[in-house]
């Protein structure tokens, strides 16, 4: 197992290098960190030239990449060109906020999707199965920004008016002066959590359903039935354990996307997370910042992929790692 892990990690090194190189090159074409200054009538070409020199933008591409990658390997992620702060510091700061939202969304999705999947499988082609299928797909089919804005309008605005007090806040992480109030935080978390979970509930519950269906048909369950165990016991004790294995794997594979792919939700709900930071970095040609986030997200993909494989092997002893 250890050898397998090491080999997998070694394999990912060339992939990481290629990814960093390609993103680095693309970023040079994507934008100019000094673009805004070019629109300032007081800024002269001499000013721009002076600033380019100070920021190292006058050096050729390969030299800048060599410099960046050298520093990166030594643990220096560089300084964000727009925020004038160390990239690592920025990422850690935003990652904390993203983690909060992610954990909430993960929990919410899990609590909803898994029971829906189980029940749909046990009562296949029942009303519940159809309704669950329909609604989970309906959620999946909504453009996320539209759904988020509608939630804001209905649960944020109209509900507040109807109740006379604010149950759900429309955006940001906390109210001014209530930065450390747990209830207040949850009220702010609710809408982005629902929005973010939407796309995953459908996928996970469907996966749980089909995985459960396969297990239910397996022989050992028939045996369990034959032994006279009650249905709920069979389902919960035997079927669920085995059916969860592939689902957990899928969840693991979704994790990196959950970390990096929440930009629209973060944007709409003014959540200061990593997705918005990346979005801002790309828009402003801040390539040190973008490189930092890309590397973090690449590590996450590799890590969770590996974890999924190992977990799979761990839970299913039939698979051996060579």
């Amino acid at each position: 197992m250890f050898a397998y892990t090491v080999r997998r990690l070694l394999h990912s090194i060339p992939v990481l290098i290629l990814a960093s190189l390609v993103v680095f090159i693309l970023m040079q074409y994507a934008g100019d960190p000094l673009a805004r200054l070019r629109l300032n009538p007081h800024v002269t070409p001499q000013d721009i030239e002076r600033l380019e020199k100070e920021m190292g933008l006058d050096k050729p591409l390969w030299a800048r990449y060599a410099r960046w990658s050298g520093d990166f390997v030594r643990g220096d992620w560089g300084e964000s060109m727009s925020h004038h702060r160390p990239v690592l510091e920025l990422i850690v700061e935003r990652m904390k906020n993203t983690l909060q939202l992610m954990s909430a969304a993960l929990l919410f999705t899990f609590i909803l999707a898994i029971p829906i999947g189980i029940y749909s499988a046990v009562r296949q082609y029942s009303k519940f199965d159809y309704a669950a299928t329909f609604f989970s797909f309906l959620g999946f089919s909504m453009p996320i920004f539209w759904f988020g804005l509608i939630l804001q309008m209905i649960l944020g605005y109209y509900l507040t008016r109807a109740l006379g007090f604010q149950l759900f806040y429309t955006a940001s992480m906390y109210s001014v002066g209530k930065e450390y109030d747990l209830i207040n935080r949850l009220q702010h978390l609710a809408l982005p959590t629902i929005t973010l979970s939407l796309a995953y509930i459908a996928g996970w519950s469907r996966y749980q359903r089909s995985s459960m269906l396969e297990v239910i048909r397996a022989d050992y369950l028939r045996t369990a039935h034959a032994k006279g165990l009650s249905e709920s016991k069979v389902i919960l004790k035997h079927a669920l354990r085995n059916a969860l294995i592939p689902v957990i794997t899928v969840i693991m594979l979704d994790m990196p996307a959950l970390f990096g792919g929440a930009v629209i939700t973060e944007y709409i709900f003014a959540w200061p997370g990593i997705g918005r930071l990346l979005h801002y970095g790309i828009l402003n040609g801040d390539y040190f910042l973008v490189m930092g986030i890309v590397m973090v997200s690449a590590f996450l993909v590799i890590f969770f992929n590996l974890l999924a494989d190992i977990l799979y092997g761990f839970l299913d002893p039939r698979i051996a790692y060579k």
Binding site: L149, Q152, M153, G156, Y157, T160, Q166, Y169, T170, A171, S172, S175, V176, Y267, I268, F269, A270, R276
Partner: peptide, 20 residues
């Protein structure tokens, strides 16, 4: 005075309407 940063204009509007 606190400046709250809300990138999406539609959200800004909603925040203003709820008094946030």
């Amino acid at each position: 005075v606190t400046f709250k940063y809300i990138p999406e204009t539609t959200t800004q509007l909603a925040q203003f309407k709820t008094g946030e």
